[in-house]
Design a protein around this nucleic acid. Structure first.
Length: 151
DNA sequence: GCCAACGTTGGC
DNA sequence: GCCAACGTTGGC
């Protein structure tokens, strides 16, 4: 089983929204490295849900991969802001897995708190200038974060 | 709102 | 294939 972290701007789609929806298609990702990771998502993988552009920023809870990545439908829709004229149904460019709500942390874990944890020093999220919106997480990092969340 | 860091685009 | 210009992300 693999572990991941996905970022979402809180005001656009929050862990609370995922709790309400129960399941959502993780679409509109338009970055090749993130896309490559999304294609590695396997059913049952666990996902840390990170809020960016929030006050404070940090990890709000957990999700689980409910379905492996399928072609992201927004790339085919000329009316969508995420339309990609170079994508075709035969050769889709962008993919989206489905995420299922797992839990809301009772204690939101802020970025500042994450930075204080020695075991997380090498976490992708905490590296200088890390803007990637889909990131791999190691098993050790994942369990250190669960411990912080008391989950 | 600022701006550093990074990704993407496109001319050559 | 290089690289300058430009756009975006995201913390502060």
């Amino acid at each position: 089983m693999a572990y991941w972290l996905v970022k979402s701007e809180e005001h656009i789609y929050s862990i609370g929204d995922l709790k309400r929806d129960r399941v959502t298609s993780w679409d509109c990702i338009r970055n090749y490295q993130a896309r490559n990771y999304l294609r590695e998502f396997a059913v049952g993988d666990r996902v840390l849900f990170y809020h960016s552009s929030s006050e404070p920023t940090g990890i709000g809870g957990l999700a689980k991969v409910a379905r492996k990545a399928q072609p992201d439908q927004t790339q085919f829709d000329p009316k969508s802001e995420y339309f990609d004229p170079k994508a075709t149904k035969a050769a889709p460019r962008w993919f989206s897995p489905e995420l299922q709500f797992e839990k809301l942390f009772t204690e939101f874990i802020t970025l500042a708190e994450l930075r204080k944890v020695a075991a997380l020093k090498k976490m992708v999220l905490l590296q200088r200038g890390s803007r990637l919106s889909v990131q791999p997480v190691t098993a050790a990092e994942f369990s250190a974060i669960l411990k912080l969340a008391d989950a």
